[in-house]
Design a protein around this nucleic acid. Structure first.
Length: 236
DNA sequence: TGCCAGGCCCTCTTTAGGGCCTT
């Protein structure tokens, strides 16, 4: 059941924000790694047999000052704070961010596939909220892949009823530790988590690419996490 | 300087409850 076009570039995405969906969070850091399909289909491996990061890789990381405060937990785990961002004179998620984002994406061969871990419940709706607030849009043929339900589903299918994999942790860190017997680096920095996400993807690339080709959902299906009640919503 | 959303999954299930996963 194909729901979208075949993606030529995969955009690995992670957001750090002021909290979980319950607090109507705002984005404080965004990171995207753009990887062409060819690099995912033909990964290189190091001497230990682990996949190597593609040599041809576009990266974008931006920090921004949210208007609302961080929850204590969000600030603790991300290392970001309103004070720290303000001290560095970071503007918010504004039209300049949108322009940089659009420029970054426009130089990737489309169609694009956004990839995030728990993306449908967090990163995609939150990004959708921020883009809509500014009247911005992603390319219409953009599709989305959420590695959390897809990897769970693939393992469940492979277990043939043994449930060998099902029930184990599927957090991004758990997957990385399971696949590579190593600790992920820089957890809860946006770039660190995107790096971890890409490595996890590379470990299962043939299956995930096939899944993306057949079952990825359109970005048009993503609903905003919430509708902002304030902010520069009318300036776009 | 906001403790709390919600869809999915598992099981001691299905007349339900609890944990995961994202910050």
């Amino acid at each position: 059941m194909s729901k979208g076009p075949r993606a030529e570039t995969f955009i690995f995405l992670d957001l750090e924000a002021t909290g979980l969906p319950s607090v109507d969070p705002e984005i404080a850091e965004i990171c995207l790694f753009a990887v062409h399909r060819s690099s995912l289909e033909n990964p290189e491996y190091d001497e230990s047999g682990a996949p190597m990061l593609p040599r041809v890789l576009d990266k974008l990381t931006l920090c921004m000052s949210p208007e609302r405060p961080f929850t204590a937990k969000a600030s603790e785990i991300t290392g970001l704070s309103s004070e720290g961002l303000a001290r560095c004179r970071k503007a918010g998620f504004d039209n300049a961010v949108v322009q940089v984002l659009e420029a970054f994406l426009s130089r990737q061969e489309g169609p694009l596939c956004l990839v995030a871990h728990n993306g449908f419940d967090y990163d995609f709706p939150l990004l959708c909220t921020e883009l809509r607030r500014l009247g911005a849009h992603l390319p219409r043929d953009t599709i989305c892949l959420d590695t959390l339900p897809v990897l769970r589903g693939l393992d469940r299918a492979h277990s043939h009823g043994t449930r060998a994999q099902v029930g184990k942790g599927y957090s991004l860190g758990s997957l990385f530790r399971r696949y590579f017997q190593a600790e992920p680096s820089a957890a809860h920095s946006a770039e660190g988590d995107v790096h971890t996400l890409l490595m996890v993807f590379l470990h299962r690339a043939p299956e995930l690419l096939a899944w993306a080709d057949g079952q990825a959902l359109s970005w048009a299906h993503v609903k905003p996490m919430y509708v902002p009640s304030d902010g520069p919503s009318l300036e776009a």
